[in-house]
Amino acid sequence: MSERRRRLVITLVAVLVSGGVLAYLALGGIGENLVYYWSPSELNASGDQAIGASIRLGGLVEPGSIEREPDGLTLRFAVTDGEESVRVAAKTVPPAMFREGIGVVVEGTMRSDGWFETRRLMVKHDNEYAAPGKDEDLDIKELMKSMQFDESAT
């Protein structure tokens, strides 16, 4: 095999490896194994398995569910995916954008009393950037898109 031919074969193999890996990740359903956060429905369905395990839970902050405990240390709210919700007790200062209807990802564990306990509360911004004064659309279905539950549905 000539030198040039050898190089071309190597190139072809390299491109195939590269393309193959990408195609596998795109089409191979690895999303099921690579779940960054659980939806409230998935968490509820897992039952006792979730208790004590280290888990990320994602969803929208259910409107009307936010409560601050008088001690000022604990924040209570519900995370919803539109179908089911999970009650969360967060012992942390929430990011400034935390509000009703916004996407959040909380890292923590399920307690046996039915509360999800977290010390790491992250706010998930959607892909909308608007100037101040634009009307807020609190359409939960629309907001839920930012949680990508259907894209990587199990």
């Binding site: 400034a96 954008m97 935390f98 509000r99 009703e100 916004i102």
Partner: peptide
Amino acid sequence: AMPEGVIGG
């Protein structure tokens, strides 16, 4: 009294 959910500063 910041409005809820807005980053100030």
